[in-house]
Design a protein around this nucleic acid. Structure first.
Lengths: 109, 109
DNA sequence: GGTAAGGTTGGACGCACGTCAAACAATAGA
DNA sequence: TCTATTGTTTGACGTGCGTCCAACCTTACC
């Protein structure tokens, strides 16, 4: 493995649109997902449904993941039959300085 | 006037929800509206339709204003037959530090 | 008072969204 | 190879959203 790993399609940094990011994060489930991946760090293969999202169907989670990825919020690598997802923090920080940290801080209350 | 001025219903600071704010700002028109009111400052009675939103019906603008207000983004005071709208910057800064400035900065590109 | 102007409200329409269910594809492990 | 696991895709359903239009309500100004 390592060679067969495939990166799922995602927008380039300069193509990340603020509206798309805000729209993606406007959904409570996806906002929660962002927080999960921010906390879990690099390339975790954590199943979101073990982090307070148990009630959601797997296809629903898959849908939300796609929205986050296509908005440029997350990056997904295929590893075997799992998906390693990470928050694109460095890229988002470069594109929209302070946004991710601000949002994460805003969620603590 | 001054006595008859009425503040349209809006959430208290502690009741402002991040998801609601993000959802409200996820629409390009409303994101633009926030930028307008951030630029125009205190209690401007500027008609949004003179700021690049000419194509929108007045009822559509009214709808967007309501969404922004109910999300806690803007504050609207009735003055005669006009509405004086302002961005609730201080309150948003207190509730979600750095969010407004981050978003405004992110729109410049 | 009558009329015009600024905004809101209600309904209608099309479209997108969040969710689930079932079927499918691909990989890991026995 | 067979089977179980992991995730995607497609379709369907209900709901909500963005928009316009028409009617309405206030207020300002002749």
């Amino acid at each position: 493995m390592g060679d067969g790993d495939e990166l799922l399609p995602q927008p380039d940094i300069q193509d990340i649109r603020l509206e798309k990011v805000l729209q993606a994060l406007g959904d409570p489930v996806r906002l929660q997902l962002m927080a999960i991946y921010a906390r879990e760090g690099e390339q975790c293969d954590c199943d979101p449904r073990r982090f307070g999202l148990q009630h959601l169907h797997k296809s629903t989670v898959s849908h939300h993941m796609k929205v986050l990825r296509e908005a440029g919020v997350t990056s997904t690598k295929v590893v075997g039959r799992n998906r390693h997802v990470r928050l694109r923090k460095e890229e988002l920080d470069e594109r929209f300085p302070g946004l991710v940290d601000t949002l994460l801080a805003a969620m603590d209350d």
